[in-house]
């Protein structure tokens, strides 16, 4: 991402000026204030200009894909990254190619780590939470389907016995899958108990 720095008498002036230099409209530009400046006393003395850093905004999916590809290349792995925006605004990154085992890692640990750094980098850059999901060869998708099956069969047990049921400890992302899978089930409710790695999801009958 090419960035420029620009100074102006006020924030608005700095933004206008930077957009002009980049040759794009203000909507297409992202910016970050480096120095807020000071307004001049009596309009003449002691004033300091506002300095901003500005860049051309790139769609989130392209940004995520480029970062993923850059990491794959630097890891010397033979794989190609693709990305798109999902239904809820989340960024879905999919890796295809060889060396998938290495990209996935033990229990998907490498995928999760790549996901963490991409979402952290994008969230910081855009100053808002960007949800990113990274998958390779459909690994996480299959894992999610398996968790959904466990959730649904446990929910059936709860419905027939009327007793609550604890699922094994799961990561936040996995628990989220269970919550979503059972969200529309009229007979059960879900919540989590425990801390950290021991946090488990509980399915209870709805009273």
């Amino acid at each position: 991402m090419d960035k420029i720095t620009f100074k102006g008498g006020s924030l608005d002036e700095a933004i206008d000026g930077a957009a002009k230099v980049l040759g794009i409209s203000k909507d297409e530009m992202g910016h970050r204030v480096l120095d807020e400046g000071k307004s001049a006393m009596l309009g003449i003395i002691g004033g300091k200009e506002t300095e901003i850093e500005a860049w051309k905004k790139v769609p989130l999916d392209e940004e995520a894909r480029d970062m993923m590809q850059e990491m794959l290349n630097k890891m010397h792995l033979l794989a190609v990254a693709e990305a798109k925006i999902g239904e809820q605004g989340e960024v879905l990154v999919e890796v295809k190619g060889e060396d998938l085992g290495q990209i996935i890692g033990k229990d998907g640990a490498t995928l999760t780590s790549l996901q963490i750094v991409i979402s952290t980098a994008l969230s910081r850059r855009h100053a808002c939470r960007v949800r990113v999901y990274v998958d390779a060869g459909g690994y996480k998708e299959k894992q999610a389907q398996a968790i959904e099956r466990i959730a649904n069969s446990a929910a059936k047990d709860v419905e027939s016995t009327g007793e609550e049921k604890f699922l094994p400890p799961m990561s936040p992302a996995e628990r989220r899958i269970v919550h979503m899978a059972l969200r529309d089930n009229p007979n059960v409710t879900t919540h989590s108990e425990g801390e950290g790695k021991e946090r488990r999801l509980v399915i209870s009958p709805k009273k």
Binding site: G105, A109, I116
Partner: peptide, 10 residues
Amino acid sequence: NALRTIAKAA
């Protein structure tokens, strides 16, 4: 930890 896992994979 994410950095360590990625470095390990690389």
